[in-house]
Design a protein around this nucleic acid. Structure first.
Lengths: 335, 335
DNA sequence: GTGAAAGCGCTAACAA
DNA sequence: TTGTTAGCGCTTTCAC
C-alpha cells in the first residue's frame, strides 16, 4: 500500500481535487456538507498531505532551521526547546542542528536548510557566516543571530551582554579578595568566549594588583574542562591561580572534577570558581557553582518571534535585542 | 533575487536540464568537460537544489525522524548526537524532536514526519504507538524503537535491559545493607520506568527483610526529583527510606538538591542513592552519584543502522538488539 | 461553491 | 554522451 493523494480523496468524496485542497487550506469557503464528506474520505484513506508537493508549489517550507554551538550544553538545549515551543505556536516546526563549534558542520546544516527552503534560520555562528547569510537573505531566507550580535548590525540578533557577564564574574572574584585570576575558555573565534574574556579584562583593568591569565581550550565541554584542570593541578601550588572564571558551566564542572575531586584542591579556599550559563546542574555540583545566569528560554522565544516577523516582511529593519546577565553566587566562590 | 533552478543552470551552461540533473546525481556518466561547465554555472548562479522537488519526484526524503522522551536529558542528547553522526555518514539528516513524555507532542512529530515523508523514524515511545507505526510502515515509512522493546516484536528495537538495570541497582543497595528501599520514578506508562521498577521488585523478592516503596512522579526531570525530595524530607526520620533508587539521574540530582543540600540528610549514611543513565554530571554532583550506565551513543548508532537497512529492504525481519547496563558505584551509595 | 487546468523543480526513462 | 519529456502532489487562478 502506498500513500494516497488529493486525487484519491477527491475521487472517494466525489469532488474535484481543487475542492479537496480548499478544505485543506481554506475550509471556510467550502460548504459544510462538502467539508464533512471530504474529511470523511481523508480519514477513510488515512490521507496525509505531502509537504514536499505543497512546498514546491508555494515556494517555501513550514520549517525553521536552528543551529546552536552544542547539542549537549543545557543552555542551548533550553534555548532550543523554547524556540520549538514558539515555532509550534505559530504553526512552524524547527529543524535543530548543532555545529559542535565546527565550521564544516555549521556549513553542512546551512546547506541542508537551503535545500529545504526553510522559512528562516536561527543561528549561533562559529565562523564568519555573514556573507553566507546575506546571500541566503537575498534569496528569501532571512536569519537572526542567537546569543550573538552581528558585527555590522545588518542582521537581527538576540543576545546577552557577554562583556558585562565577564566583567560581573571577575569583579565578583576581585571583590572577594582574589588576585591571580585565570580565564579558562574555548576557541577564541567564538564570540561569546572572546567577549567574556574582554569583560574579564575590563574588570581587571581597574585593579593594579590583579593579574589575568587566559587559558585557551579547543571546546566548551566537560572533557576540555578536565584537561585544563589537570594542567593546573600539575603546577606547583604557588603558581596556580587563586580564582578561575570558566567560559561556561560545562568547563567549570570539568574543572571541579580534576581540581577538587582528583586534585584535592580546596574550592573555594585555594581556588574560587565561577562558571557561566547557570545550567540546571550548577546548583547541584560537587561544590555548588557560582555562575552567570542567562535567560535561555527568553532568547529562544524572542529569536523565533523576530525571525517570523522578518519572514513575513523582508523590509523590516534589523533589530538588536540584548539582555543583561545576572550573577548567582554559590559556594564555589563564597570565601 | 530568487533561487535559480536547473533550468537556469542548463541555460548558462548551454546543456539540457537532463544533463544538469545527471551531473547532480550521476556525474560519472557525463563527460568531464560538461561536468566542469555545469559546475561552474552552478557556482556562478549559486544554485542550490530544491529538495522538495527532488523528494516529490523520488517519493521520499533524505531525512530520518527521531523522537526522544526528553530534549534536556543528557542520555537522550548523546543518543541523538550519535544518531546524527551515523545518519550524516550515510547521507541522511535527522530531524530530532522530543515528546517531553507527552502523547500529543509525540503524535505531532509523527504527523510532521509523515507529511515530510521521512525515510524512516526512530522513536522512544510514550503511548502505545504500535498501530500507528504499523500504518506508517504499510505506507513505506519503517521505524525502529530506541531504548525500548516492542511488545509484540513486530518492530526492530535497540534497547538496554531495564529490568536487569533495576535489579542491578537494588541488589547493590541490598548488599550494602539497606532495608527500606524507595523507588522514585516517572509516569509508569513509560516502559523504561516500569521495567526498572520491575527489576527492583525482583531484586527485593529474594530478601524477606527488605521493603520496596514506589513513589510515582509526573516526569523524569530535576524538578520532579526535587518535589519527591521535599516529600521525603517532611516525613519523620523514622519513616524515611534508607535507600532510594531513582529512575534516572535527573531525578537523582533533584533528590540530592532537596535531601542533601536543603534537608541536611546525610548521603549515603542516612539515605543511599542510586540513579540511572550515568550522565556526564553524575560523577560531579554534590555527592558523586552511583548510577547505571547505558551505552547511549551505541544505541543511537545501531538504531540508525537498522533503520536504514530496513528502509532499503522492507522485507527484513525485525531484530531486537539489547544491551546490558552496568553498575557504576560512587559515593552516593558507598557505605 | 465547485471544477478544470497550469505549473512549481526535479528525476528518470527513453530517444537521438 | 546528451536531449526531450512525462509526471510526482499540490495550490491557485479563472471559469462556471
Amino acid at each position: 500500500m502506498v500513500s494516497s493523494s488529493v486525487k484519491d480523496v477527491a475521487a472517494l468524496a466525489r469532488v474535484s481535487i481543487g475542492t479537496v485542497s480548499n478544505v485543506l487550506n481554506r475550509p471556510e469557503i467550502v460548504s459544510p456538507e462538502t467539508v464533512e464528506r471530504v474529511t470523511l474520505a481523508m480519514e477513510k484513506l488515512s490521507y496525509v498531505r505531502n509537504e514536499a508537493a505543497r512546498q514546491l508549489r508555494v515556494g517555501h517550507s513550514h520549517a525553521l532551521g536552528l543551529i546552536t554551538l552544542s547539542g549537549s550544553n543545557p543552555f542551548f538545549t533550553d534555548l532550543t526547546t523554547a524556540a520549538e515551543d514558539g515555532a509550534t505556536l505559530a504553526g512552524y516546526s524547527v529543524i535543530a542542528g548543532n555545529s559542535d563549534e565546527k565550521k564544516d558542520r555549521e556549513s553542512g546544516y546551512l546547506n541542508l536548510f537551503e535545500e529545504l527552503r526553510v522559512r528562516g534560520v536561527l543561528i549561533s555562528p562559529v565562523g564568519n557566516i555573514v556573507p553566507r547569510l546575506r546571500r541566503m537573505r537575498d534569496r528569501g531566507i532571512p536569519s537572526v543571530l542567537v546569543d550573538r550580535v552581528s558585527n555590522d548590525l545588518s542582521f537581527s540578533s538576540v543576545s546577552v551582554d557577554d562583556i558585562a557577564g565577564g566583567s560581573l564574574a571577575v569583579t565578583h572574584l576581585i571583590e572577594s579578595g582574589r588576585r591571580r585570576i585565570a580565564f579558562v575558555g574555548g576557541p577564541s573565534e567564538i564570540r561569546q568566549v572572546s567577549d567574556r574574556l574582554r569583560g574579564a579584562r575590563q574588570a581587571v583593568a581597574g585593579h593594579p594588583g590583579v593579574t589575568l591569565e587566559a587559558i585557551t581550550l579547543n571546546a566548551l565541554t566537560v572533557q576540555e574542562g578536565r584537561r585544563a584542570g589537570e594542567a593546573i593541578v600539575e603546577r606547583p601550588a604557588a603558581s596556580r591561580p587563586d580564582a578561575i572564571f570558566a567560559a561556561n558551566d560545562l568547563l567549570a564542572i570539568g574543572l571541579l572534577q580534576t581540581l577538587f575531586m582528583q586534585g584535592n584542591i580546596a574550592i573555594p579556599e585555594e581556588i574560587a570558581l565561577v562558571g557561566y550559563d547557570d545550567i540546571l546542574f550548577a546548583s547541584a555540583s560537587v561544590v555548588p557553582l557560582t555562575s552567570i545566569r542567562q535567560p535561555s528560554r527568553l532568547i529562544g522565544e524572542t529569536a523565533v518571534r523576530l525571525l517570523l516577523e522578518e519572514a513575513d516582511d523582508p523590509e523590516l529593519e534589523p533589530r538588536q535585542i540584548r539582555y543583561q546577565p545576572e550573577l548567582v553566587v554559590r559556594a564555589s566562590s563564597a570565601s
